[in-house]
Amino acid sequence: MCAASKKPAEAAFAPLLQFEMDMGTFLSDWQHCDQLSTFMARMISHNRTDPIRHSNFFSFALNELLEISFRGGSPEGRIDCIVYRRDLMERVKLSFTCPSGQQEFYREAVSRTHQEDAFSRYLGAISTDQTPNREVILLDLAINFDADVRLEERAPASITFVVDLPLERAIN
């Protein structure tokens, strides 16, 4: 997607909530993923049509993204998460530091969520793998949560996911 066509759409998303944390602190406790996703989900869902169910869905998706950064992140630098809203859509922008050279890996995983064989890849993975890898998790979000997942290029040793979640429509 070219920068020119992206800008106006981005402008229409209004920021709702943000957290920023030292990666070292974030990585110190696995429970942070659950706690942050539960809290953020509650806060941003209060004025959705069905706050409780919206929060439940949103928390699922955000937790998976946080778990990815927990598993793949490196302890220097910061993790930064902003939730935006436009109409029926929430957007999560999540940046975290990771070992350099990882971008390519994420780029490929993200691009697979847009490919035609996404569903069969997903089925293949859940029918054979013991534990989910980053790719399956992104496929899960794309397939089961109708998420649109992209990467934004920023600093070399960091990853920025931009994930659009049309949960309001999916729930009601």
Binding site: N56, E64, Q130, T131, V136
Partner: peptide, 17 residues
């Protein structure tokens, strides 16, 4: 089941499959 991550989903799915 209020929440379950992919790690748990896949582990239980594995046993069933």
């Amino acid at each position: 089941l209020v929440q379950m991550n992919n790690t748990a989903f896949q582990a239980f799915a594995r046993v069933v499959l």
